[in-house]
Design a protein around this nucleic acid. Structure first.
Lengths: 222, 222
DNA sequence: AAATATTTTTAGGCTTGTCTAAAAATAAAA
DNA sequence: TTTTATTTTTAGACAAGCCTAAAAATATTT
């Protein structure tokens, strides 16, 4: 049925298309895709033709591309596997949330439905990965969740960290140093109008978060 | 230092060379390697030239090949990872010993020393995999172990299953049905001279093992 | 030792996934 | 609207891994 052979490279392109489309479905253009993949525009065009031949994307020359039903299924499953492995690496092997991306990037390509499902059970069927990103279920269904950008918090409001928009080790490590892991509670004491920096209380102590940090933090308002 | 890029295909050839050499170091010839890899002799020759260029093997045209120091290190580490993942799959995810080979075949190529070592700790630093094969340590050291072929047992002797020489799912499943897992105890009641078949007692009940089964079973004599 | 058989290597091709340079299409500016 | 700039595609190459068919080397028979 569905056993057409997909290479890791093809999977990675599908995932990149998914990622770009997530923010703006109209922005999946050759250059953006090449940038996301770290390849040349020529290579991206090349791959788009292959993916189109395999009916994994709908591709119109010069116009951009979108995932087909089948392509979307593959990309979603890839993200599912990536995030399940991340949970495993953090919860079971004790890695920090900024250390797991490269491993998960490899592990997501391991084939075998049974393995994925048993892994899911073993780690307790988590709905979110260590960065707060949702994990689609085996049918590709996403759990929608209401989270707010930290910058929308008003003075005096409290919130719980539910996710990050920047997954770079540098940002994650910095948050860790501030005591801001997933599930951490913080209170916005004051926001400086001039530079959108935020004075916050994290447990017993205070800190100042720059606008850049604020932009990349999601919270659930308490 | 040691970060020269090795592809999965190259790793697989190194592992195949190791495997053939294990039984007979002089038998690592092009045809044997091609057979082991399921490729043509021409492809094997091709790869041997590449591996030779990378100093991973010592290759003499028409004469056969052997692993270099570096090649041996890579092959050993690959086997280490393969067997550690097998233990994980059986002990933690609950797979049967005949189900894990294909998954481990993929997982062994995951790069990252830290991952391997944390996995090793997580599963309790096992010395043997689910088939009784030894797991080399992080330095590539092998634990030597005394095990005997079942066929060397004399009537009346008892033994504990310590390993198998045939890893095919068919054989492993058959053993499972007989109640002959790793660590199982059995007693040789009688061996038929004509066909080397063996009447055995396994716990409370009796069974007859063909010569073929007997050849592929290792035991520790009690 | 010469003839025959087997094994191994070479030669030439194909696909995937990449590249650079040039051409073509689209978008923006004058 | 015509020119200029940008984006995208095409053309031609290359390395990795595989193939088949033919040639060369080694091993076996007679």
């Amino acid at each position: 049925m569905n056993a057409l052979l997909i290479t890791s490279a093809e999977e990675n392109y599908l995932k990149a298309i998914f990622k770009i489309a997530e923010k703006d479905p109209g922005a999946v253009l050759t250059n953006a895709l090449a940038a996301e993949m770290g390849t040349s525009a020529a290579s991206a065009t090349d791959m788009l033709k292959r993916l189109s031949d395999k009916k994994l994307v709908v591709y119109e020359k010069y116009r951009g591309v979108k995932l087909s039903e089948a392509g979307n299924r593959i990309a979603t499953n890839l993200i599912r596997k990536h995030r399940l492995w991340e949970v495993f690496l953090v919860d079971k092997l004790g890695f920090a949330w900024d250390e797991v991306h490269d491993f998960a990037e490899q592990l997501e390509h391991i084939q075998g439905e049974q393995l994925t499902e048993r892994l899911d059970d073993f780690i307790g069927n988590p709905r979110f990965d260590p960065h707060g990103d949702p994990i689609p279920d085996a049918q590709g269904k996403w759990l929608r969740r209401t989270q707010t950008r930290f910058l929308t918090l008003a003075s005096g409001q409290r919130g719980i960290i539910t996710g990050v928009d920047d997954h770079s080790p540098g940002f994650l490590q910095y948050l860790g140093e501030l005591g801001l892991g997933l599930g951490a509670e913080l209170e916005l004491l004051e926001r400086t109008a001039y530079d959108q920096s935020s004075k916050v209380r994290i447990g017993a102590h205070h800190a100042v978060l720059s606008e850049k940090v604020g932009q990349n933090l999601f919270v659930r308002i308490l």
